[in-house]
């Protein structure tokens, strides 16, 4: 690994930026604006994760296809999300009751 090009200060600087972003993501929701909360909470989470991946995990100087490897995992998850959303995000069946627990099965059958 050619991390010699990454001096000490570099890491500490990244760490400083990460902490600043952390503060923003905690303060953001306190303004109680839903859109802003989404951006500060999840937008910043993505930025933080990318920074850790790029600088601490050295993905910025790693072979290109390692990115592809990791991203194909995320693509699989996206497919999972899309495939499941139409089933899991519906409310049909929510009123199902556990008739074994309430022992009303017998009456239902009669």
């Amino acid at each position: 690994m050619t991390a010699e090009s990454h001096g000490h200060t570099n890491y500490v600087k990244i760490w400083g930026i990460l902490l600043f972003l952390l503060v923003v993501s905690v303060v953001g929701p306190m303004l109680e604006i839903p859109v802003l909360t989404l951006i500060t909470a999840f937008g910043i989470a993505i930025v933080k994760a990318l920074m850790v991946a790029a600088y601490f995990m050295h993905l910025n100087i790693e072979k290109r296809y390692v990115w592809y490897m990791l991203i194909s995992g995320l693509v699989a998850l996206l497919v999972l999300f899309v495939g499941l959303s139409s089933d899991i995000m519906t409310d049909t069946g929510k009123n199902w009751e556990d008739c074994i627990a309430t022992s009303s099965c017998v009456e239902q059958r009669l």
């Binding site: 999972l80 495939g83 499941l84 089933d87 899991i88 929510k94 199902w96 009751e97 556990d98 627990a101």
Partner: peptide, 18 residues
Amino acid sequence: FIPSGGGDPVLFQHLFWF
């Protein structure tokens, strides 16, 4: 995955077949 407790049984089917 228990509907009476607020879970979703179809979710597991999806995870299993995925």
